[in-house]
Design a binder for these strands. Structure first.
Lengths: 149, 149
DNA sequence: CAACATTAGACGTTATAACATAAATAAAAA
DNA sequence: TTTTTATTTATGTTATAACGTCTAATGTTG
């Protein structure tokens, strides 16, 4: 549906302004759908991202700073996130012996299993984007890459 | 820059998967820039959206439910948002005489003034999107509208 | 009218983002 | 070596999103 109708707003100042709102709105639409998916696994999107990064490192550990750098939306809150994941038994955390300031975070077997279950269902994205053709998806990816310069 | 390089991740499963991550990442990029803009006016993006809706209604009031419906990302927290805006003197709030369950929220003169100052600078979006041509902006808007079906 | 259902909003809780600051440790400089 | 600086993480604060529950007011039905 056209954005103007969905948010019941008068016209935009120009196409650039509409694009900004469109990005915000489309992101919201996407994350609502994703949240439903994540919720069925009792996990949040942010926590899922952390687990993905940790699986990428496995069997090596990741420091808190590495997690921060790799996060999709950067944030300064990785310590508390890791603690919540530890409470769920999905990661483990120890002080690094070489540099006692650092913390080594590793994904547990239980965490790996959870991701495996979620991988199978990840094809959901294709259903979610059923309204556009593959060629349009590719075009969108190119344009989005280009926006950010 | 290509998304794969920016987030230092291996290839995506397919273009649909990449699109999902690209939307999240581009939204993050955009809201970081917007946050800087809003911060210079001592206001948040969400609060700005509420003020915009209230200015659209002015001089009529808006109920809390109307604000919820019109928000870009729906949420159930409009009461507390309005209270924070009231503390800043940007809105006023009274109980509706006809239906005492409802609350009538209005933007104050001070709120209108703030928006006026911010309008002047809103052209920043054009600078932000300087990397793509107008035709590409229009194409993006069409495709984003189409994604959501 | 009385009993029940619905609606509008407030508020409590948890997870998060963005910010600042503190504390511990390591590295560098004097 | 002692002092200073930088790094890494933890923690406190505020604003928010998403959830649920509660209460007051209004509507509906018998």
């Amino acid at each position: 549906m056209k954005l103007e109708d969905e948010i019941k707003q008068k016209k935009f100042k120009n196409d650039f302004h509409k694009l900004a709102v469109n990005l915000i709105y489309t992101h919201g639409w996407l994350s609502n759908h994703q949240a439903d998916f994540f919720k069925s696994f009792d996990i949040t999107g942010t926590q899922y991202n952390i687990l993905r990064i940790l699986r990428g490192q496995h069997p090596n550990p990741a420091s808190i700073n590495l997690l921060k750098d790799r996060m999709l939306d950067k944030m300064s809150d990785a310590s508390r996130l890791v603690e919540r994941l530890k409470n769920k038994g999905l990661v483990e955390r120890e002080i690094c012996p070489e540099d006692r300031r650092r913390v080594e975070v590793k994904i547990t077997d239980s965490g790996i299993e959870l991701l495996k279950k979620m991988d199978d269902l990840e094809d959901k994205f294709e259903n979610l984007f059923a309204n556009i053709k593959l060629s349009e998806v590719k075009m969108l990816n190119e344009l989005l890459d280009k926006i950010r310069g």
